[in-house]
Every structure is written in structure tokens, then in C-alpha cells.
Design a protein around this nucleic acid. Structure first.
Length: 300
DNA sequence: TGAATTGTTATCGT
DNA sequence: AACGATAACAATTC
């Protein structure tokens, strides 16, 4: 759930609390989420001082004195909780790891679903090599977006969600961007008119900026800080009237993701041609059935 | 009870 | 071969 604006909010809320602090101890209760393994990770971060806290895409990036970076990815349900005095209160729910600092404070990494990741990286280039352009960075221009769109034969929404192309947009902000640009999520990326590319560029920048201004979107119990949910126009509004035209918002699935569109404001003109080969369709459904049958049941 | 939830990765197909 | 589509996966909540 945490996307670029939520991660940015978390970074801003914690920057003054951790920058300048030296990590005295690190404890993990779920070592599987560490890269490298527990021993190497601990060795890499303990007794190091945090010189800066920033963000790359959806990664929280803590620069460490003497080089190297401590990276945190919240994935679905990860969150940070800072305590001035480590022993003052009971641990927060789902505490999976914590960092103890030189002044007695403690930073918990909590994660109900355990999908989050903690990583030590000696060189940020490794991360940069896997991530696309920062949508709020200077290099994200209309021309840059036009180049990215024209280079790929793909539907718009999966492209927006692909972190290797544009880094930081997730499901909520993808839907909101497409709505504000008046573009259907299944529109073919390389077939947009230049005016449409311009609208999409402006929509992405505006909706992410708005998200940051509102401290992100509060989803269920995860983010108590933000109020961007009050400004979403399509996400989670299936069946409710479009705020622009009153047409009921439609929920559909695009690339296995829940997707929300206004069929009036986001016309399907220019839609990708559907796959028409019956053999291909049959083969796919056969595979799907076979896969479902063959999938082993989860062991408790 | 199982469907829904997400970003990433492995894999399959074109 | 390179790219796109999709299944699998990590666990939990309601």
C-alpha cells in the first residue's frame, strides 16, 4: 500500500529522529526479510552513524557514515515506529526488527504481513540499476514520458506500475493519475497522442504531489497520518458517482490488479486490440485450470 | 473458509 | 533474444 507519497511522508516524519544517531544494536525477529543474511546485515549496520535519511522510489534510504546504505521497503503493511525510550512502553504490534540508538531511542520496523524488506547496500548504483525514473525528479519530463511510452507495446496501467520504468507509482496513484488524465488503463501506451502524454505527465506529477501534501493515504490501520483518502476520485469508489460527471465508477481487473475507472471520463478509444485467436484462449484457460489444480495446499 | 490485498520475481509464451 | 503477460510468493485480515 505505501507508495511514493506514503514513503516520502514516513521519511519526513523520521528524518530528524534518526539522522545523526549511531546504531548501537540491531535485533531481527524475522531474519528472512534481511539482505544480506542476519550476521552480515548486523555487522554492516551496528556502530554506524546515520548521516542522511531519504527516499528512492518506494525505498527508504539511510546513508551510513563511512559509506553504504540501510534500505527499508515497507511493501504492503510495513511501518516504522520510533520510541524515545526503548523500555518505556510495551512493544508495538507486529514488531519484526528494531534499531537501538546511542541516545536510548529505538526504531521499530513493524510488519503484520512480513512482506517488508531490510537491506544493506554498499553502493546505491545496484538499486538505481533496477529502478526507473523518479516521477518527481527533474529528469521526468514530458519528453521522457513520451519516450518511455512509445518504447513499449503495453497497456498503460501495467506500465505505470512497472518500477523499472517509472519508480514509485503504485495501484492507488496509478488509478488516480489515469483518471485525472482522462485515459483508460487499457489504452495502448505507444498509441497516445502528444496531448494525452502531456495530460498523463501532468496528472502523475500533480497526484503524487497532492499525496505528499496530504501526508499520504491512510489505508485501514496502516497509516494514521495521512488524509489523501479524502481526495481520491476513483480508487475504492466502485459504484459511487464520478465526482466529475456522476457516472458510476466501474471496478475491473487489469494485470491482476483491482482497477477503478470512470467509463465516461476515461473512454476506451484507442484500446489495445483484444487477442482473437481461439486456440490461444483455450490454451491459456487450460493452463490456468491445470495450475490451480496442481497448486499444493498451504501447510499450516 | 477462502478471497482479497501488493510489489517483486520466476517462468512461460510470442 | 527480447519483451510482455502471468502465476507464484511472501502472510494476514475479515
Amino acid at each position: 500500500m505505501p507508495e511514493l507519497p506514503e514513503v516520502e511522508t514516513v521519511v519526513r516524519l523520521h528524518r530528524d529522529l534518526v539522522v545523526g544517531r549511531t546504531i548501537h544494536a540491531f535485533v531481527s525477529r524475522w531474519p528472512r526479510q534481511l539482505t544480506p543474511g542476519p550476521a552480515a546485515f548486523k555487522r554492516a549496520v551496528v556502530s554506524r552513524r546515520i548521516s542522511h535519511l531519504g527516499r528512492r522510489a518506494k525505498w527508504i534510504v539511510a546513508n551510513l557514515d563511512g559509506g553504504g546504505h540501510l534500505l527499508i521497503h515497507l511493501r504492503m503493511s510495513g511501518r516504522l515506529e520510533w520510541r524515545k525510550d526503548a523500555a518505556s512502553r510495551p512493544e508495538p504490534a507486529h514488531a519484526r526488527a528494531y534499531f537501538d540508538f546511542d541516545n536510548g531511542s529505538r526504531l521499530y520496523f513493524c510488519d503484520a504481513r512480513k512482506f517488508g524488506r531490510l537491506m544493506f547496500l554498499a553502493d546505491l548504483k545496484v538499486l538505481d540499476a533496477e529502478l526507473g525514473v523518479e516521477p518527481l525528479g527533474a529528469e521526468f519530463t514530458v519528453k521522457k514520458l513520451a519516450d518511455l511510452l512509445s518504447a513499449r507495446r503495453r497497456a498503460l496501467k501495467p506500465l505505470l506500475l512497472d518500477q523499472r520504468i517509472i519508480a514509485g507509482v503504485g495501484n492507488i496513484y496509478a488509478d488516480e493519475s489515469l483518471f485525472r488524465a482522462g485515459l483508460h488503463p487499457l489504452r495502448h501506451a505507444s498509441r497516445l497522442k502528444s496531448a494525452e502524454v502531456q495530460r498523463l505527465h501532468a496528472a502523475i506529477v500533480q497526484v503524487l504531489t497532492l499525496g505528499i501534501q496530504h501526508n499520504g493515504t491512510m489505508i485501514d490501520w496502516i497509516y494514521p497520518d495521512g488524509n489523501m483518502q479524502d481526495h481520491l476520485q476513483v480508487y475504492g469508489r466502485t459504484g459511487k458517482p464520478c465526482l466529475a460527471c456522476g457516472t458510476p465508477i466501474v471496478g475491473l481487473r487489469v494485470g491482476q490488479r483491482g482497477t477503478h475507472v470512470c467509463p465516461q471520463c476515461q473512454p476506451r478509444r484507442g484500446l489495445r486490440r483484444p487477442v482473437r485467436r481461439a486456440a490461444s484462449i483455450n490454451r491459456r484457460s487450460d493452463l490456468r485450470l491445470a495450475g490451480r489444480e496442481a497448486r499444493p495446499r498451504r501447510q499450516k
